[in-house]
Design a binder for these strands. Structure first.
Lengths: 262, 262
DNA sequence: GAGTGGTCTAGACCACTGT
DNA sequence: CAGTGGTCTAGACCACTCC
């Protein structure tokens, strides 16, 4: 390891892994580390930055560098889709009680704060492809933000697209003030006679855009899970495309695949 | 935006998003940018580092900074599990032809290079929990590396764990030189009378450890998808736990959830 | 060899945190 | 107020790429 900042990073990393520095501990000040390793402060900072990018430490301006505590991630299971489908035709009182997110997380409706806004757009290429429809098709774009009542930052950024003409039969679906709709999207689709056959979810990981990092209040160096959910109805039509951005360090996606018997 | 390097990053980011700088283009040299923005070179480098962390540019030592081309990711679908299950009992000749990875990617066996190594370990807490067995239970740890024949870096790091006593009935399963086993793990389990009921996959995103970054040849700033796959048999026993690390920028996970009819 | 990014120094000043 | 990290300068030398 020829490079000075890597040697410093290695030594600190080893100390953390060995448990000499425990989660929550403050590291020595950057100037102290510079003395100890006989390097300039910027060189020490380079090493600390590497450790931060690995998620091992957290910088707190004016306070110090701290060993990070492991996160207990929120769970999101694909069983939610079947659960939501079963619930879509229940009586209103039943549907209003719990949403899919509460079902996943074990929280109650009061623990979450929900915000939605709608607008009508024309499909650009990416979306037109996902729907299998021509570019320019009218879509209803719905933007959702859900957060814990006790926290400021939402834990997911969701943008959902519906084919405008498919849902226009029920004008209530075009009005954002009806959100949150009891029973979720599948209940909304049920109101215009659409039943889902399956849900496809595509998952990738990437660094957040600066906008996403700001909205989710992501510490620098954390990545996001980008999930594109496609809902397909009994006629094999794509009826909903949703882009979901989740903080990588506090989300766990669970997918259960049942297998047929031999 | 009070800070100098953010103003520089913003201007370059805008140019890239607007298409003034196209994928593959080289940015002006760091010294030129420093002149243009009337800032020192380290400040310009700070801005470039931010863009690299967002995945927008790529640094090439001695050549320059380049606008990154979007990656075409490898696909991994959960339909593979059912496909593999159907194949597990086929005749050897059939099984040897194609594996699940080839099925996903559309490649043939010759396009991929495969490496496996085995050792026996005792379950530590994390694994014991996943299996629902006491700590210290003997496990067979199997490490897999698969890469494209044309590339040096593997596209996945897989560590799989099997309960030693469950599979010891068939000594061939304890010998790494029998890999790649035609038909995959489900075929191996079939040879000791185990049939899978379902597969659960837990997905998170995180920065790579330095070791993972080196092995996968990840450009700095990219994140990995960490997938823990749990295979459960008809008796509700956990028979396999696999940890899969995939490069976030060139992997897309596809999960299909079929829904029951109303 | 010319041009590029990679590392490093030694110090300055600012912004934030806690007493 | 003292102590901490955040930003920035101006310049040095090294390592790599390409001609």
């Amino acid at each position: 390891m020829a490079v000075a900042y890597e040697r410093i990073a290695d030594e600190l990393r080893a100390a953390i892994r060995a448990g000499e520095l425990k989660p929550g501990d403050r590291l020595p000040a950057e100037s102290k580390l510079a003395e100890r390793f006989r390097r300039s402060v910027p060189t020490v900072r380079e090493a600390l930055r590497a450790l931060r990018d690995e998620g091992l430490i957290e910088k707190q301006h004016g306070r110090g560098n701290f060993v990070r505590r492991p996160r207990t991630p929120a769970l999101r299971s694909n069983l939610r889709h079947q659960w939501e489908k079963g619930r879509a035709r229940e009586p209103l009182a039943e549907r209003a009680q719990t949403g899919a997110t509460e079902h996943d997380t074990g929280l109650t409706v009061g623990d979450l704060v929900f915000h939605a806004s709608y607008r009508t757009i024309e499909a650009h290429r990416d979306l037109a492809e996902a729907f299998g429809l021509p570019e320019g098709t009218a879509l209803l774009e719905r933007t959702y933000r859900t957060r814990y009542a006790a926290e400021n930052a939402p834990f997911s950024l969701v943008t959902s697209y519906l084919v405008h003409d498919l849902i226009a039969r029920n004008p209530a679906l075009l009005d954002e003030s009806n959100e949150p709709w009891p029973g979720g999207s599948q209940s909304q689709l049920y109101s215009v006679g659409i039943e889902l056959d399956r849900v496809e979810e595509r998952v990738t990981a990437r660094p957040p855009t600066p906008e996403e990092a700001a909205e989710l209040e992501l510490p620098p160096g954390t990545s996001v899970l980008a999930l594109r959910k496609t809902s397909i109805d009994l006629d094999d039509r794509v009826v909903d495309v949703s882009d979901v951005v989740l903080p990588g360090d506090r989300t766990e996606l669970l997918f259960t695949t049942p297998l047929e018997r031999w």
